[in-house]
């Protein structure tokens, strides 16, 4: 029998202590990854996070639901398309062009944007304009910290965001009958962008973002309908004028620039008074939608004096 001494064991073969100590969890994760197929193979590294006072204590949406039920039209219009059709999407290396009215316009490597900051875990409610909702533990930093790196100038009033365009890797961006004009663009007023609730997320459920959820970097604006939280961001531009936004271009009567969650202002075709929590099975039922998705105490002052029926 050959007994190898320590010198013959390569360091890459040694099981990390954390994995060893959490081996039951690791095994369960491996089994889950195998059974999930392509969606599970891309399981990401654990992130180092601190908790946030902004987090809700509501029950989390199961990760399985939050990573298989997505609107990300770059990969297709069906809810399962992003999980099923995003495996070709590559997110390393990744850089974000920050330009417009900033002191230090540049292409910033993703690491340079995120690593100066301590990542936080923020458990936010997510309300889709379609009338369903989730509770998701995001990982990221306040957008304000990232904008400060580039130095917004005094003339800047708005922030415009842009999603990557890669027809080779994003099946929804090629072929016949594409759902939207690309790139997907979104925008916020500068005070909305600088609000501490506004998050730049690079992870969820303690791990890096899966492709279908907007890897490697996405916006999360919890008091606005989900489509404002633009995914896979490659460009951030500070501007003086209100930037165009994708859903407003597609249907200005139905989707406004602000798109704050508001149970009193219905979508022209359906009610926004209630929502269906996703992940609770058939018996989950409906619950009342809250003004500003429950973040009124934090953000209502941003809209003081505005008619929210006009500025929908």
């Amino acid at each position: 029998m050959l007994i190898r001494n320590a010198g013959q064991i390569r360091s890459s073969e040694i099981t990390p202590k954390s994995v060893y100590l959490n081996r039951r969890h690791f095994m369960a994760g491996s089994v889950a990854a195998l059974s999930m197929g392509s969606a599970g193979v891309a399981s990401a590294a654990k992130l180092d996070l601190v908790p946030s006072a902004f987090s809700t204590d509501e029950a989390l949406t199961p990760k399985e639901a939050a990573t298989t039920y997505n609107n990300f039209y770059e990969f297709g219009t069906r809810k399962e398309d992003p999980a099923n059709r995003s495996s070709e999407f590559t997110t390393t290396p990744w850089s974000v062009k920050i330009d417009g009215l900033v002191d230090r316009p540049a292409d910033y490597a993703l690491e340079d944007l995120m690593s100066p900051h301590q990542l936080e875990e923020r458990i936010y409610r997510l309300r889709c304009v379609e009338g369903w909702s989730m509770v998701i533990p995001w990982a990221g930093v306040s957008l304000s910290k990232i904008l400060e790196l580039a130095g917004p100038q005094s003339g800047a009033k708005y922030v415009a965001f842009e999603t990557v365009v890669r027809p080779d890797e994003m099946p929804g961006q090629r072929g016949f009958g594409q759902a939207l004009d690309w790139p997907y663009v979104e925008g916020l007023r500068l005070d909305e962008a600088m609000h501490p609730l506004t998050l730049m997320a690079n992870g969820m459920y303690g791990e890096e973002l899966p492709n279908q959820n907007g890897a490697p970097l996405r916006l999360v604006v919890p008091w606005k309908y989900g489509f404002k939280s633009i995914k896979s961001i490659v460009r951030i531009t500070l501007t003086e004028k209100e930037p165009p936004t994708t859903w407003n271009i597609a249907n200005p009567r139905e989707y406004g620039f602000y798109s704050n969650v508001n149970p009193q202002v219905d979508h022209p075709r359906w009610s926004q008074a209630t929502e269906r929590p996703i992940g609770g099975g058939l018996g989950a039922g409906r619950k009342d939608t809250l003004m500003f998705n429950g973040y009124a105490d934090e953000v209502a002052s941003l809209y003081a004096g505005m008619d929210l029926k006009v500025n929908y």
């Binding site: 199961p62 399985e64 639901a65 939050a66 298989t68 039920y69 809810k79 399962e80 369903w132 269906r276 996703i278 992940g279 099975g281 058939l282 989950a284």
Partner: peptide, 15 residues
């Protein structure tokens, strides 16, 4: 399938 949780994340929408 709807009553036995085999329709994905949103069984009602699927049903």
């Amino acid at each position: 399938a709807a009553f036995n949780n085999k329709l994905g994340a949103d069984p009602l929408a699927a049903l």
